[in-house]
Structures are given as structure tokens and as C-alpha cells.
Simulated scan of single mutants.
Amino acid sequence: MSDPQQPQVPPYAQPQHPASGRYSQPAPHPQGYVLNGNSAQPGYPVPVANGNPPGRIGFIFGLIGIAVGLVANLATNILIYSGGYYAVEASSWVSTLFVLAIAGLALGFGIAGLRRPNAPHGQAGIAVGIGLAMIVGSVGSVVINAVGATLFRYF
């Protein structure tokens, strides 16, 4: 009886084992490659950072900005029905400036979170979206109110 024939395998596909013995050092890994500024060994996962603090902070600022905007809208409606136009105008400007500041923080932290390599970008992306939406909404509201007030005075 003869030994079964082994299929021919090219030498580069065969695993390399150290020749010295059972307790010898393993063969060194091939030179790594660079992907998105991070070096990694082929066949090994790229290390992932634990969370994304700027993205999380931006997300929290975005949620705070939404809550402040809703409370300011409610307060403005209460002031409208209770009278006092100057109180309504003052509270509207203060709340708009406060919401713009919070939206700027959410946008800034969100962008900083998106720029972190190898970090989760979900909350950072949401923070950027919330920040941009609040900025566009607040600036649009100010422009519409200014145009409406100007048209009311002249017509």
C-alpha cells in the first residue's frame, strides 16, 4: 500500500513553521499597511476607540437645544395670551440666542466627533444634523419675523 497522494500546493500558500522546536518564537508578521492613518497588521482587526466623547457631548447639547426650544415656544405662547408685546419680543430674542448658542455647541462637538478616526460616528452625525437644523430654523425664524414686522409697519 502506498501513501495517498497530497495535492501540490504552491510554496507561498503553505504555512511557515519555525524549524527549531516547540518553544521557539513564532515567525514575525509581515509588514503592516496603513488605512485611514492607522496602521494595522493584515488579518488583524483595527483597534476601535471606546466611544466617542465629543459626539456624545454634541448629541446631548442637541437634545438640550430641542428641549429649550420647545419650552421657549411654550413660554412665548403663554406670554402672547397673557398680554405684553415687549415681554414676548424680549423672551423670543433671548430664547433664540440661547438656542443658537446651544446649536453651535452641538454642531461643533458633532463635527469634532465625526473627525475622530476609528470611533463610532452615530451620535456625532445626529448632533451635526440637530445642530444644523436648529441653526437653519432659528435664523430662518428671525428673518421671517423681521420681514413680517417690516411689512406690518409699512402696509
Rank of each mutant, 00 (worst) to 15 (best):
S91G: 08
G113A: 00
H121C: 07
G62E: 06
A103T: 13
L63P: 05
A103Y: 02
P42N: 03
V48P: 00
P7N: 08
G108P: 08
P18Y: 04
V46K: 12
R22A: 13
F61K: 08
G108K: 11
Q25I: 14
S92R: 04
R153L: 13
S20N: 14
I135E: 03
V136K: 05
N38Q: 14
N38K: 09
I78E: 12
L97V: 12
V46Y: 02
L151S: 12
L74E: 09
V9N: 04
T76L: 09
Q41W: 04
G83R: 02
L35N: 12
G104E: 05
S20E: 15
V71M: 10
N145I: 04
I135K: 04
D3L: 10
F61M: 13
H29T: 08
A103S: 09
A106R: 08
M134F: 04
G32Y: 09
A119Y: 08
V34C: 01
Y44T: 09
P54A: 10
S24F: 06
L107W: 13
G137Q: 09
V94L: 09
V94P: 07
A124H: 05
A67G: 04
Y81S: 14
N38F: 13
V139A: 09
N38P: 00
A19N: 03
T150V: 06
P4A: 00
R56E: 14
I78V: 15
N77V: 11
Q14Y: 00
A146E: 11
V99K: 05
P117M: 05
Q16M: 04
I66H: 12
F155P: 14
V94Y: 03
I126P: 00
Y154H: 12
P18S: 04
S141D: 03
G62R: 03
Q41C: 01
M134V: 00
F152M: 12
G32Q: 03
P117H: 07
I130V: 14
